[in-house]
């Protein structure tokens, strides 16, 4: 079972990310369970969502405390709290960041904010990076196919918004780079 934890702020579409990943997994004949942590749904508040993926039915329901993958879609979260808490030793971090960041885990970076802006993915003045970052996630983990994710996005959004997001997601997929660690 693969356990992915998403970190962002209220209003950035973190919950939708987990849902889309779960739906994409279904296209690849995998089981999934996607759910948010509720309580602080204010705009701007830190928020987590979760997605489990497995070839077998998923019975566990508790929040993910020891994830295999952590996805951070708001770069400011890295400095104010610790989204990597509990991340497994051989885990993966996928970051929205304009520059490489060196962490103690395998780390993938993409400047999703720029990608979103280039594609006009702005809602109420905020760049919407959630779907964009899914492109980066798929590049990093390979567990679900990019095509499956595209299908899930098309299912979720109205046609025009879906197409823009799909385009941006592909760009993010291409631009995502693994950070090669310099320090030992």
């Amino acid at each position: 079972m693969l356990e992915v934890r998403f970190h962002g702020r209220g209003g950035q579409g973190v919950v939708t990310m987990a849902n889309l990943l779960g739906e994409a997994a279904a296209y690849d004949d995998l089981y999934s369970a996607a759910f948010p942590i509720y309580g602080a749904e204010r705009r701007g508040a830190e928020i987590e969502s979760y997605c489990r993926i497995s070839p077998h039915p998923i019975r566990v329901t508790s929040p993910i405390t020891e994830p295999d993958v952590v996805v951070v879609i708001d770069p400011t979260l890295m400095s104010v709290n610790n989204p990597t808490v509990g991340l497994k030793k051989n885990g993966i971090v996928v970051l929205n960041s304009p520059h490489p960041v060196e962490l103690s885990w395998r780390t993938f970076v993409v400047d999703a904010t720029t990608v979103a802006s280039e594609h006009g993915l702005i809602r109420s003045g905020w760049p919407m990076v959630n779907v964009v970052m899914l492109g980066a996630l798929v590049k990093a983990i390979g567990t679900v196919r990019l095509e499956s994710l595209e299908a899930a996005v098309r299912e979720e959004f109205p046609e025009k918004i879906a197409e823009t997001n799909v385009k941006a997601m592909r760009v993010a997929y291409d631009r995502t780079k693994e950070v090669v660690r310099v320090a030992a």
Binding site: A18, N19, G22, E23, A26, Y31, S32, A33, A34, F35, P36, Y38, I58, T61
Partner: peptide, 10 residues
């Protein structure tokens, strides 16, 4: 509540 009501599964 939430654990089933808001968890998306096949």
């Amino acid at each position: 509540g939430f654990i089933l009501s808001h968890t998306k599964v096949p």
